[in-house]
């Protein structure tokens, strides 16, 4: 086994906002109906977070749990701890209908940071960023590809599929080009 590498190996760009590809980051797709017995325990065991409410991202240190759909939660945790977490989830949801799967390598993750980071996002997604709350997880479109993102004090985290990481990096960089502030 060699060290896992993220899709772009940490590429970055400095424009009026800063773009950084980060990772690898541990991610688990957990599918289970809301209210499934043991779901709260499973999420807690993997991330230390409570079950996220509609469109919310629960965060604890470098771990998080995000609402992806009525029966899907995205779990974020250190890359090395995924298989351990999958075991814990299986334990917590034993006998309950669910699906937990490692998607850490299927994704690319970016940070968009700076005082005008929101302007980069406003160029690529049909989302009202004036009303996007801190810790709100939004799945949408970034130009021509699917993306999920959320906002914190320092900027945005953007997640997309690994195969289009190069497209996303170029798209974010183009949108953050100095002189193109909105």
């Amino acid at each position: 086994m060699s060290d896992p590498i993220s899709a772009l190996n940490g590429a970055s760009f400095d424009g009026f906002a800063t773009i950084r590809e980060i990772g690898p980051i541990g991610m688990i797709t957990l599918r289970a109906k809301a209210g499934t017995k043991g779901l709260d325990k499973a999420i807690m065991a993997a991330t230390g977070c409570a079950v996220p409410a509609l469109l919310r991202m629960e965060t604890k240190d470098d771990r998080a749990a995000g609402w992806m759909s009525p029966d899907e939660v995205l779990l974020i945790l250190p890359y090395a701890e995924v298989s351990q977490a999958l075991d814990a989830i299986a334990q917590a949801l034993k006998g309950q209908h669910h699906l937990a799967v490692n998607v850490s390598d299927a994704r690319a993750v970016f940070r968009v940071e700076g005082a005008q980071a929101d302007q980069v996002m406003r160029k690529i997604s049909p989302v009202d960023f004036d009303t996007l709350a801190l810790g709100e997880l939004r799945r949408s479109r970034a130009a021509q590809v699917a993306a999920a993102f959320w906002r914190d004090e320092a900027g945005f985290t953007v997640v997309c599929f690994r195969s289009v990481a190069g497209y996303m990096m170029a798209l974010l960089s183009q949108s953050a080009k100095a002189g193109s502030e909105l």
């Binding site: 509609l54 469109l55 609402w67 759909s69 009525p70 049909p126 939004r138 949408s140 479109r141």
Partner: peptide, 12 residues
């Protein structure tokens, strides 16, 4: 009706 997002057509 599931996530409450007012989605524009390009998301659908």
């Amino acid at each position: 009706p599931y996530c409450g997002v007012k989605a524009e057509e390009t998301e659908l």
